[in-house]
C-alpha cells in the first residue's frame, strides 16, 4: 500500500471496481451545480472549470479516462464551467494524518500509518461533536480522503457563510483561541471545547514540545509526571485547572495555554475551511499517489481505512 498506482491499475480500478453508487447522494443530487476538476497525469488538478450535467456523464468520464485524481467543488454555481453565479458552499473541515502537529506514532514527515490515521479519525469525530452539540448542526458527512478525513456540513444555515464566519467557526471547533481568563472554567460553551482539545493533547505531550512552547524546564518536567498528568486530566473534565496552574506557575500556565492554542490551530487545514470555492477529492475516486480509495463513510464508528479503502488491485499485489 501507499505505492503509486500505475495507469493500468487506475484503469482496472475504474472499470472493475468503481460504482456510481459509491458517490454520495449529496453530490449526485447537485452534480450540475458543482465544478469538477481532474488531474490526468499526477501533476495536480489542472483540468478545472468542468460542468458535469448528469451522473451518467460522470460515470462515462471516469471509466473512460481513469484519471490520476478527481475532484468536485464544495461550492454550487449557476455556471460551474465558469465558476460564476456562486450559490453557496458546504462547510468543510479537513484533517490530514500526515500533517498532524503531534502524533504518537513514529511516522516520518509525509507518511501515515494506522496509528496516526486513527488519531485523525478520533479528532474529526470530536469536531463533529461540537458542531452537533453547540451549533445544532445535523447534516454531517464524513469522507475518508486517502490520508485523512473530510467532514462536510450541509445544513442550510452554513451554506451561505462567507470566509470570515467560516474562520470563526473553525477557531471555535478547533480551539484556536485562548478563552478569556474569567471564562476558562465554564462547564459548557467554547471553554469546554478548549479544555477537551487540551485533554487530548496531554497524552501526546513531551518535553521537547513543552519547551518549544516556552514552558520552563522545571515546570515542564513536573507536568510530565504520569501521576500529575492523570490528575490534570481528571480535573480538566471537571472544568478545573487547579493542578495545572499549580504545577506550571502563572507564567508557565500562560505559555502552556498559548502552546495548546497553536497546536489546536494546526490540526485542521484552515485554507480548506475558509475557501468558499474549494475543490475536494471526489468520494469514490482513487487517490493514485497512495493507491487508496477516497470513501464516503456511512458508519464512522466501524470504518477502517485498511479494510474499506483498499482497492482490489492493491489487495492482489500481495
Amino acid at each position: 500500500m501507499f505505492r503509486e498506482a500505475t495507469p493500468a491499475e487506475r484503469q482496472r480500478y475504474y472499470r472493475e471496481e468503481w460504482r456510481l453508487n459509491d458517490v454520495p447522494d449529496f453530490i449526485l443530487a447537485t452534480i450540475a451545480q458543482r465544478e469538477f476538476g481532474f488531474d490526468h497525469r499526477g501533476e495536480g488538478p489542472n483540468d478545472r472549470y468542468n460542468r458535469i450535467a448528469t451522473p451518467a456523464q460522470l460515470e462515462g468520464m471516469l471509466i473512460n479516462t481513469a484519471p490520476y485524481a478527481a475532484y468536485a467543488s464544495v461550492s454550487f454555481y449557476e455556471k460551474p464551467e465558469k465558476r460564476e453565479g456562486w450559490l453557496g458552499a458546504e462547510l468543510v473541515f479537513d484533517v490530514d494524518a500526515k500533517d498532524l502537529p503531534l502524533r504518537s506514532c513514529s511516522c516520518s514527515p509525509g507518511e501515515v500509518c494506522e496509528v496516526c490515521l486513527a488519531e485523525a479519525k478520533e479528532y474529526i469525530l470530536e469536531v463533529a461533536d461540537v458542531l452537533r452539540d453547540d451549533f445544532a448542526l445535523k447534516e454531517l458527512h464524513f469522507v475518508y480522503s486517502g490520508r485523512g478525513y473530510h467532514l462536510r456540513v450541509l445544513d442550510e444555515e452554513v451554506l451561505h457563510m462567507q470566509s470570515p464566519e467560516r474562520a470563526a467557526v473553525l477557531d471555535y471547533v478547533a480551539g484556536g483561541v485562548v478563552p478569556e481568563p474569567e471564562l476558562l472554567e465554564l462547564r459548557r460553551g467554547y471553554p469546554r471545547v478548549f479544555r477537551m482539545r487540551m485533554l487530548r493533547l496531554l497524552s501526546l505531550l513531551n518535553l521537547e514540545t513543552l519547551r518549544s512552547g516556552g514552558v520552563p524546564l522545571k515546570q515542564a518536567d513536573a507536568l510530565l509526571n504520569p501521576k500529575t498528568l492523570r490528575r490534570v486530566a481528571n480535573e480538566l473534565e471537571e472544568g478545573s485547572f487547579a493542578t495545572l496552574k499549580e504545577t506550571l506557575r502563572s507564567k508557565g500556565f500562560a505559555k502552556f495555554l498559548e502552546l495548546v492554542r497553536r497546536i489546536n490551530a494546526e490540526m485542521l487545514d484552515a485554507k480548506v475551511t475558509v475557501d468558499v470555492k474549494r475543490i475536494l477529492r471526489l468520494p469514490s475516486s482513487l487517490h493514485s499517489k497512495v493507491s487508496m480509495k477516497c470513501v464516503y463513510i456511512k458508519n464512522m464508528e466501524r470504518f477502517d481505512p485498511f479494510k474499506h479503502a483498499v482497492p482490489r488491485f492493491v489487495q492482489e499485489r500481495g
Partner: peptide
Amino acid sequence: RSRRLSLTQLYLTRG
C-alpha cells in the same frame, strides 16, 4: 463578519 462579536467569547449551546 464585521467582527463586532467573536464566536469564542460567546456561550453557545444547542445552536
